[in-house]
C-alpha cells in the first residue's frame, strides 16, 4: 500500500513538474510574441505603384468574383474622350458599343460631361478585378484606374491567396485604419 502511494506521489510530482514547464514555455512564447504585438488589426491591400496588372487578382482570390476591384481616383483622371482604359486599342468608334469596350463585363460606365470631357465610373458589382482597364489606363493615360482590395468583400484571410502568387509582391499587410492605397492622396503621402 505504501509502495502504491509512493508511486502515485512520484507520478503526481512528474505531472506537476511537466505542467509547470509547459506553462513556462507557453508563457515565454507568448511573452516573446507580446513584445512584437500590435493593437491594430492588419488587412491586405494592393500597392498600385507596384502592381503590374498581371490579371491574377481575378482568378486567385478565394472569393468569386474576386474581392479585388478596379477603383477610380477621379483626381488623377484626364476625362479623355479616347480613354485607354475604356476602349480596345483597335476600337472602331469612340462609342459605348460593346465591341469597342475593353472591359469583359462592361463594368465601366462612360458618361458625357462637357466638350471634350467624359466621365468613367466603375460598377463594382460587375467588376471582376481582371485589370485590363488598369493596364490600358496606365499605359496610355494618367493611371487613374487602379486595383484595390475592397474591404467589405475581402475576408481578410490569414494569408492572402493572391499575395502568395503576386509576381511583383504588390499585396501587403497594411494597418486597418489606413486600409486603402488610393493613388491620388496616396502619392501625396509618399512625397511628404
Amino acid at each position: 500500500m505504501e509502495d502504491n502511494s509512493r508511486s502515485k506521489n512520484r507520478r503526481e510530482f512528474i505531472q506537476s513538474g511537466m505542467r509547470l514547464s509547459l506553462a513556462l514555455a507557453l508563457g515565454s512564447v507568448s511573452g516573446l510574441a507580446l513584445s512584437k504585438v500590435v493593437k491594430d488589426e492588419y488587412v491586405w491591400q494592393i500597392d498600385p505603384f507596384e502592381c503590374t496588372q498581371c490579371g491574377r487578382c481575378a482568378t486567385e482570390c478565394v472569393m468569386t468574383p474576386s474581392a479585388v476591384k478596379c477603383v477610380h481616383a477621379y483626381d488623377l483622371c484626364g476625362y479623355c474622350d479616347l480613354c485607354g482604359g475604356y476602349f480596345k486599342p483597335d476600337a472602331n468608334q469612340l462609342s459605348t458599343a460593346a465591341e469597342n469596350q475593353l472591359c469583359p463585363t462592361a463594368a465601366i460606365e462612360r458618361r458625357f460631361i462637357e466638350e471634350p470631357y467624359f466621365e468613367y465610373i466603375i460598377n463594382e458589382d460587375l467588376c471582376i478585378g481582371c485589370a485590363k482597364c488598369v493596364e490600358g489606363c496606365t499605359a496610355f493615360g494618367n493611371g487613374s484606374l487602379h486595383l484595390q482590395i475592397i474591404h467589405d468583400i475581402c475576408l481578410n484571410c490569414n494569408e492572402c491567396a493572391i499575395a502568395r502568387v503576386c509576381p511583383s509582391n504588390a499585396i501587403k499587410r497594411v494597418k486597418a485604419e489606413n486600409s486603402y492605397l488610393i493613388k491620388g492622396d496616396f502619392s501625396k503621402e509618399q512625397e511628404s
Partner: peptide, 9 residues
C-alpha cells in the same frame, strides 16, 4: 464623385 472605400471590419 469621390472614390468609394468601404471600411474593413
Amino acid at each position: 464623385p469621390s472614390t468609394i472605400t468601404p471600411e474593413p471590419r
